[in-house]
Design a binder for these strands. Structure first.
Lengths: 251, 251
DNA sequence: CGCATGCTTGACTGAACTCAAAGTCCGTGG
DNA sequence: CCACGGACTTTGAGTTCAGTCAAGCATGCG
């Protein structure tokens, strides 16, 4: 097996898992409208007025948002921060499925079997909005729009998943890295940030586990793209000097 | 780029695409109960009596079920036969996402953007059951159960997708092939067939595009597993001689 | 200040890709 | 019905790319 793919943060996350919940006074709420905006929903809904509010959940960097196998209790929308969803194999090898950020949906793999099938860990401090399963599967007509929204969001996540799935296919390692950076850039744009400069929230090892290459290969690919003048790398701080160069490199 | 990954059947599929629909007399229907059984739905639904029926669609081997980019018009459940869903990149490289068979759902990547994002082609003669988008998004309360069922089935497909996604990660080529065969075996069991003997509906190239290795590597891995006495390969006819041996080989 | 984690780079090795050739199966048309 | 051709498969030989092992530096936290 691949020793390197063992979760880099497994050791120091353990004590943090037992962190107590925040005190009552720190509980905040988000309304339906904010969820719509976060998800950038562009479809059509039945009702015009929504009174439903959703509880938020704040996480510190390194904290586990959802454990693998834990009973399904709802979907979460990222309000801010970055996370990592991953599956750990029996042999300890980790597979990083995605890196959810603002506006992304979390927990949708838990609906089918009524337990979450992947682990979700906060890479930075995070704020999540919880859409509880009671609301999701409510018999009340008032919650139909919530269900429909979730339906739409899940389909969107599937597409996202397929895109990143394709990312790791049929290409040399440095091409995968170039694609990864391009997609990261596009995601930052979608969140309203700069496409040309951003800070990666994940380690080289995480990226490697995501693209199915080793962390050394990621590092070398970054250095190579830097030498070509396409990007500038300073630890996790990435500047894209030529987006066209990056795109050309992808084939 | 990888010339080998160009769809092997691209040439002779073209004329078949224009096949006319079957005559009216050949149109058949399936009721809600049959769909439930095919999907092996084990959740809870509100209503007890369903009158909704769904039109079937028959395909010949090689025919395209759904084109990439085509407007979304519904979900499909496989009644019998085997298909391949794939995405073709700009450079002509094909990525085989999945091989849907009896009881699997097709077309769920089309909901988000209202057009299908992958191509689906029949590998054998097929029979599909169509759940039209009108029913899926019907404002009628009578169709709530259809929507709920689709919701559940999509979540199941996500899990399936993540499983096969993990399949291609962090393992040597022959281990991937062993995993692939084990999963195929399990799927045949779920469909009520033998776990130890089955005929693969797809080519070596298709498997390669799915596992992200070349067709030669697939062929060599099959030969290696055959030599080890774990399986017996005769073209597409697979006999699993030792399921334990196959499992042990996976690590 | 010290240590753990993360990152970079180099040298070597091995697994998978590429190219090539030959055999097998199957559908089609004569 | 049989012959042909194309697609599919197998196997071999050489090459390349990424993994492995190792060493050293940077960073940030306690």
């Amino acid at each position: 097996m691949n020793v390197q793919s063992i979760s880099s943060s497994a050791r120091w996350q353990l004590p943090i898992r037992q962190l107590p919940d925040l005190p009552e006074s720190d509980v905040h709420w988000s309304d339906f409208q904010e969820v719509l905006e976060l998800l950038q929903f562009d479809g059509h809904l039945g009702q015009t007025h929504h009174t439903r509010v959703f509880q938020r959940r704040r996480l510190k960097a390194g904290q586990i948002a959802l454990n693998m196998g834990q009973p399904f209790d709802g979907l979460y929308v990222v309000r801010f921060g970055a996370l990592k969803t991953s599956m750990t194999h029996v042999d300890g090898a980790e597979h990083a499925l995605a890196f959810p950020m603002k506006g992304d949906l979390i927990g949708f793999d838990g609906i089918c079997k009524n337990r979450y099938l992947s682990e979700v860990v906060a890479l930075t401090d995070c704020d999540l909005i919880k859409i509880p399963s009671e609301v999701l599967f409510s018999p009340s007509r008032a919650d139909d729009d919530v269900e429909r929204l979730a339906f739409w969001a899940i389909s969107r996540e599937i597409v996202q998943e397929q895109t990143t799935y394709a990312l790791t296919h049929s290409a040399k390692a440095d091409v995968r890295v170039a694609r990864f950076l391009r997609i990261q850039s596009e995601r930052f744009v979608a969140m309203g940030y700069s496409p040309n400069q951003f800070k990666l929230p994940m380690t080289r090892r995480d990226i490697g586990n995501h693209l199915n290459v080793t962390l050394e290969t990621i590092s070398r690919a970054f250095s190579a793209l830097d030498k070509l003048g396409i990007i500038s790398v300073e630890r996790r701080e990435i500047k894209i000097l030529s987006l066209d160069g990056l795109r050309n490199f992808e084939r």
